[in-house]
Write a protein that binds this DNA or RNA. Structure first.
Lengths: 337, 337
DNA sequence: CTGAAAGCGCTTACAG
DNA sequence: CTGAAAGCGCTTACAG
């Protein structure tokens, strides 16, 4: 049987009030008493029952993150890194992280958000893979649930979180490719309603415009952010009568699939065709050839998001409610770099 | 304000007892009453407060998994897939999944297990990356906390979980390589105390023994299960006076790093050198060349583990407390397949 | 500086 | 078939 606060109090002939206050660091407890309480609690292996504390404090001391899984059984290493950051920072503050997966905009996703938000399971939520019009953001705002997001929805009235400037990133990437002599550059995106697709696609178009290349709609494909999707989309692009000489992809996984497709067609990536991604996942440095990418520090972004969320939950004022970061263009062999 | 059971009861002029029982599906509630209660609860947006229910039931309705992160900021896609399976199956049973990360055998890891187990935060835990002598297993068994694991520790008296037969898998893999004409075959493992390393290394040795090849200690390297580690270890092996013609790796990530090292030395993987991994992560099909691997259905294994854990928690008898599965040898271009 | 008491929102014997 | 009451383990005004 786990000891309760009552057991500790009894052992010391103190009231549970005093034990609770001693453990919680209240100032009005005799130093001697406090020491005794700590020591005894330690000895007895006492730690407060979370459910009781939550019920009383009306707080869960738990953060939530719902992985927007595109397909059952598939997982982007991006998420693993993101979760690791979330989990590490949360536990550094004695918060827990609740995780589940749900397909974007599915009934299951709605159910999960409602269960957690209304059920008081979490004090706040972290979101990413934001949509241009995102019901989750509207829902959480409507319910007054603290939340932060990686990426910002244009429909979001009061955004707290971090934005990676994908637009400028892609602009830079395009300049690099143009510099390498490419003019027939394709784009493989994800769902066009995704904020990341929107920004990166805009950056792609702007990059073409900067050197007066007329965008060719034939060179734009959209997949589902997986290697499988990138493989198929690239297969299609490379089968065109006038195929592209470069392909920029909305994320690294898509690019990895695209490299596979190119390779299968006997093309040497980096020489016959340039391919680039976005995210800077650990694998990108070890693909064959290594992958040019726009690197964002996913792990650290996740930690930063938790810090912001905690401030929100505790009603503290944030120095910066909105942080913007620049992805770093990492030029590698896949674009002949 | 979230409505409580009291609000629902008041609205219907019923006692909270009846509302609770109706919602929980007790048989002794008038059908008419039940319908009314459900409808009203729905309308009012009522869902039971988790903390209160947990406190009363002395159950968390939550499962825990602590990611054994080898280094901050790094995450194996294996874990993402594993977590996705855990999360999906848990939520299918209205359970939640609590996640954090901790370095194996670190004080932080101990603290996390204690906090969750003793703090009553979780009803049970899922473990993987088991060590030959694993303090976590001993601790949980000692505390009587239900738990299941992927891989079994030899020191575990009462194992419930799933074992992948890595030994036989590596035996098969070695036979395949020998069949391709290789005799100088290297092994890159992880920590030698890891069960997966132990099994796979044993399979490697047995595979050599089966064709009377004397194992050469020079050809055995150990890294940390990351591409970075595999890259360095392979670099070392390939720099030997008599380098191997084939390298088998404890996991896919290590193999991906090894391929990188080979490539950098001007070797064509699949022709000049054979490389293989283990896990069958999604990326393995899209590396250049595609990676021969021993595939295990990580996502489904995770789901199965949750089912087993839930049975354990509910005191049900499991048809099979110990499940053994065979990894499937997927021969791809990296071994000239 | 310490303690008695209320109450967070449920579930569940028990009584009728 | 329904309800009154106890109690899960805490925290926190309030009193002294």
């Amino acid at each position: 049987m786990r000891p309760t606060i009552r057991d500790v109090a009894r052992r010391l002939n103190l009231s549970i009030t005093t034990v609770s206050r001693a453990l919680d660091g209240y100032a009005d407890v005799a130093e001697n008493t406090r020491r005794l309480v700590f020591q005894t609690a330690q000895e007895m292996g006492y730690s407060p029952n979370r459910a009781a504390r939550q019920l009383r404090r009306q707080r869960a001391e738990t953060l939530g993150y719902i992985i927007p899984s595109v397909s059952a059984g598939f997982a982007d290493p991006f998420f693993a890194e993101f979760i690791a950051g979330l989990g590490d920072e949360a536990s550094a503050h004695n918060y827990d992280l609740l995780v589940t997966t749900a397909s974007p905009a599915s009934p299951a996703e709605k159910a999960a958000y409602q269960r957690w938000a209304q059920g008081g399971k979490v004090d706040g939520m972290v979101l990413n893979r934001i949509y241009l019009d995102d019901w989750r953001l509207r829902y959480l705002a409507g319910q007054g649930i603290p939340h932060v997001s990686l990426e910002r929805s244009p429909s979001q009235p009061d955004f707290v979180g971090i934005e990676a400037d994908s637009y400028t990133g892609f602009l830079e990437l395009l300049a690099h490719l143009v510099n390498q002599g490419h003019s027939r550059i394709a784009y493989i995106g994800g769902n066009a309603e995704l904020k990341i697709d929107h920004d990166r696609y805009s950056g792609y178009l702007a990059g073409l415009g900067a050197v007066s290349i007329l965008p060719d709609p034939v060179l734009v494909a959209r997949a589902n952010l997986t290697p499988q999707g990138g493989y198929q989309a690239a297969g299609h692009l490379l089968g065109l009568a006038a195929p592209p000489t470069a392909i920029v992809c909305v994320n690294d996984l898509t690019a990895i699939g695209a490299m596979h497709a190119a390779h299968e067609r006997g093309l040497k990536v980096g020489r016959d065709i340039a391919i680039a991604g976005f995210d800077g996942i650990a694998d990108s440095a070890h693909t064959q050839p290594s992958l040019t990418t726009l690197d964002i520090p996913v792990y650290n972004l996740a930690r930063q998001l938790v810090i912001m969320l905690l401030a929100l939950i505790n009603g503290e004022t944030l120095p910066d409610r909105q942080v913007k970061i620049q992805p770093i263009l990492v030029i590698r062999a896949s674009t002949g770099g």
